[in-house]
Design a protein around this nucleic acid. Structure first.
Length: 474
RNA sequence: GGUCCCAUCGUCUAGAGGCCUAGGACGUGGCCCUCUCAAGGCUAAAACACGGGUUCGAUUCCCGUUGGGACCGCCA
């Protein structure tokens, strides 16, 4: 087939890439990859007062971090003003658009009036028949919207949606400063770039009939539409800053994995039976609009956290070692220029990964493996490093001293011997040791910890714990 | 207010007329495992918004009500 899928993600750079945008990008990307199509990144920056280069960079960076690679672009609409202008002129020439000299102040007054009276705040079309320019006023260009009949959208997700054309008003396609507006640029670009399917949030559904009319006026084929349901905050309103972290960057900084975030996002509105965790290949293979839901979804950070933990748990420790390094530096667990052996770090991570839900948590847990001396948590010290455990710790220290094979299996033998000798349970020995080695009462299995820590560090820390109980001990 | 969209456990969802005693997941409670914490296993509580149709039979189809959301810009 020659009608290969071409889709685009078209954010406006008036903020960072946020959760909602990321999901829109993801669905576009999945649809393209599923059908061997083309995914285009386009920056809609016609609003020069609010768009910044910084945000463009942030969006591009966010997309890269998520692994949503694009095949064409990023295109910028500000580079294409000439194109839009020529289309607008064409519409005016053909009588499908006209100059309007109404001032924004009087329009605002009329709109407020209409709203106050419960009327549709629609432009009345008074400049439609105006033949002569008004001196000293820079006009806008308005698109002449048909007022009869209806416009039908056949949406891939919502189904057939019908709009009365009488509800549509003559929207502005060129501002008085000569710059084009969204409803024109989006159509022109989608035509120019050969977009076959417009996949976007359903907050755009109400714009769609207007755009369809512009397609028709321009004489172009209308693309397919797929309007994704919104993502809501806990209070069931559109997800926004006041609901907490909403930028993709924020999640990266909190130690989330891009694949986990994507996996979470895809399940907001899409499902494949009972499956919760998907590889990238599965996502691409299974994705279809048939199983995209119609209802808005509430963003649930708890489930995202769980999913992230699942991904960390399953990831190769060596890869986690690379990913956690920046967090170790940032959290000052590792100091500038300090060399960390990656193979060793990977072994340490292997003991911790099923206990960490984020890279940040992992970095914090790694602390006691890496630092020179641990600090004891006061409650833990009081409970486990005291007169009761002193003798046991000393004895263990002496038992351990001749051991050269510091493997979990060998260490367990030493512990078992002592347990038998004193008729005690593992807990009464393991907990004091745990506090001595990690400073707290929570850690991976004690033998694993000792194996990773190694003979030297283990003995040093035991000595130090013993001295902290009895300063006179050797 | 108008237009449009939507409606299954607290949340994400499965469900395409009988498979439903409504399934899974997160979260919550309990139990098991156990050197702590996790992970894992088992288990419990928890939903078809309401009212009319259609049908032998509605969670599923239709209509209405209610509720929620989005949009109504010289923003995108």
């Amino acid at each position: 087939m020659s009608d290969n899928v071409r889709v685009r993600f078209a954010p406006s750079p008036t903020g960072f890439l946020h959760i909602g945008g990321a999901r829109t990008a993801l669905f576009n990307w999945l649809y393209a990859r599923h059908g061997g199509g083309t995914f285009i990144l386009r920056i809609e920056d016609t609003d020069r007062t609010r768009s910044t280069g910084e945000y463009i960079e942030a969006i591009v960076e966010g997309m890269k971090w998520l692994g949503l690679d694009w095949d064409e672009g990023p295109f910028r609409q500000t580079d294409r003003f000439d194109v839009y202008r020529s289309y607008a002129e064409k519409l005016v020439r053909e009588g499908k658009a006209y100059y309007c000299y109404c001032s924004s102040e009087e329009l605002e007054t009329r709109r407020k009036e209409a709203l106050a009276r419960g009327r549709l705040p629609k432009y009345d079309g008074r400049c439609r028949t105006l033949k002569k320019p008004v001196p000293g006023v820079s006009p806008v260009v308005r698109f002449m919207m048909p007022q009869e009949g209806h416009t039908v959208i056949d949406d891939l997700i919502k189904g057939k949606v019908v709009f009365e054309n009488g509800q549509l008003d003559d929207l502005i396609i060129v501002r008085s400063d000569g710059t084009p507006t969204y409803n024109l640029t989006v159509v022109v670009d989608d035509v120019d770039m050969g977009i076959t399917h417009v996949i976007r949030g359903d907050d755009h559904l109400n714009n769609t009939p207007k755009q369809v009319q512009i397609y028709r006026a321009l004489g172009y084929k209308v693309p397919g539409f797929a309007h994704l349901p919104m993502i809501l905050g806990a209070d069931r309103t559109r997800l926004s800053k006041r609901h907490g972290a909403t930028s993709v960057t924020a999640y990266r900084e909190m130690g989330y994995l891009p694949e986990a975030l994507l996996n979470y996002l895809v399940r907001l509105g899409w499902s494949y039976g009972d499956q919760e965790i998907f590889s990238e290949e599965e996502l691409i293979r299974y994705f279809s609009f048939d199983n995209v839901g119609k209802a808005a979804a509430v963003f649930n950070p708890e489930k995202l956290l769980w999913l992230n933990g699942q991904y960390i748990m399953r990831m190769a420790p060596e890869r986690l070692a690379d990913l956690v390094m920046p967090f170790l530096m940032l959290e000052k667990v590792v100091s500038e220029g300090q060399a960390i052996d990656k193979a060793w770090l990977s072994r340490a991570i292997a003991t911790l990964q099923e206990r960490s839900r984020t890279l940040l948590e992992l970095a914090h847990s790694l602390n006691y493996y890496i630092v020179e001396d641990v600090e004891y948590e006061e409650k833990a010290r009081a409970k486990f490093l005291n007169g009761k455990s002193l003798a046991l710790l000393s004895e263990l220290r002496d038992e351990l001293d001749p051991i050269t094979d510091f493997s979990a299996a060998e260490l367990e033998k030493v512990f078992s011997g002592m347990m038998e000798k004193h008729g005690i349970k593992l807990g009464s020995l393991a907990q004091p040791v745990r506090v001595a080695l990690t400073g707290g009462t929570v850690s991976p299995g004690i033998f694993e910890v000792m194996e990773v820590m190694g003979r030297e560090k283990t003995l040093t820390r035991l000595d130090r714990a013993i001295r902290s109980i009895d300063p006179g001990a050797v």
